[in-house]
Amino acid sequence: MSDDTPTLDGLAEDLEDLKAVVNGFASQLEHNTNTVDQVAAKVATLGDGQGDDGENGKDKERPKTPPFILLLTGDVYAAELAALAGWVQHLLVPTYLGEVSSSATWCARWWEHPTAVARLHAAWLAWQELTDPETCGRTGPSVWHRDHLDPMLTQLRAADGPFAGCMTNPDRPQHTVLPVPPVEPLPGGPVVAQVAPATA
């Protein structure tokens, strides 16, 4: 036999290598197929009821996307703010705020600060999704803390954040909120809604 003649051990090793490569390709194909199926399902969901006069096109409700709270007005804004206030009062404040200081500010009238309302609302929407076992998986709460809660609190409680003009001692309130400029319609765009302060 010549030196380049394959041995049984070498062939068996080559066969195992080929199996591993084929299994890798099969695993990647399965992953890609699942991804394509998920994207196709999302596209189909978004397309339902949009100009389709098919059998159930008019009966299907379009999926609702979370509202940007500062674009809401009137009763819709008031209802969304009330729901947010319940979450802030019963979960966020007692669990995560702790001591208030000049380096970690907080305002008892947070709803009067549009920046705070927007950031708190975004964190609350993420909390709803990432603590729901149907949508979050096992890592949802960890992702919420890392990606939503911590950055939001860092921004809100910073010494130069939206609560910087609010005193930390409740016996000496000195609440400063910048005036809201009048609403002007954007050329060819929507009117930006003023945020109406809610009552305490």
Rank of each mutant, 00 (worst) to 15 (best):
P151S: 06
T65F: 11
S27R: 14
V180M: 11
L120T: 06
P133E: 06
G57F: 01
G54E: 01
L130C: 01
S103L: 07
S142F: 11
V22A: 09
E184M: 14
V183G: 09
P182M: 08
W110R: 06
P6S: 04
Q28A: 15
K19A: 14
P162F: 05
G51C: 06
G86F: 00
W87S: 00
R146S: 15
P66C: 05
P141H: 08
G161K: 02
A79D: 14
E112Q: 14
R172N: 13
W106H: 09
E61V: 12
A12V: 11
L15C: 10
D171F: 10
P67H: 12
G98N: 07
W87G: 00
A158F: 05
V39W: 04
H90K: 11
T33M: 08
V100S: 06
L84K: 04
A159K: 10
V88H: 05
A159T: 13
H145L: 15
R157C: 10
A41P: 03
P185T: 04
A26I: 07
E61L: 13
G47W: 07
E112I: 01
V183Q: 15
T199G: 13
L186Q: 11
A122D: 08
H90I: 03
H90Q: 13
E55Y: 10
P182S: 07
L97G: 07
A26P: 00
P63Q: 05
H175W: 03
E80V: 01
W110Q: 04
M167P: 12
P63T: 02
Q89F: 07
S102F: 10
V117P: 04
R109V: 11
T131P: 05
T5E: 11
T168N: 09
L81G: 02
H90G: 09
L29S: 14
P133L: 03
A40W: 00
D3W: 11
T168W: 05
V177G: 03
L125R: 13
A83C: 00
V76T: 10
G140C: 07
T176K: 15
T176P: 00
W111Q: 13
W106G: 00
G140N: 06
T154N: 11
S102G: 15
S27E: 15
L186Y: 03
M167D: 15
D3M: 11
N56G: 09
G51K: 05
T168A: 10
T176L: 14
K60I: 13
Y77R: 07
S142R: 15
L97N: 12
R138P: 03
G98K: 07
F163W: 14
Y77W: 00
A44M: 09
R119C: 05
L125Y: 07
V183H: 05
R172E: 15
F25E: 13
K58G: 12
D132V: 04
A198P: 01
G10C: 02
D14M: 08
V21M: 10
T95Y: 08
N23A: 12
A40N: 11
L149Y: 05
A118R: 12
E112K: 12
W144E: 02
L71I: 04
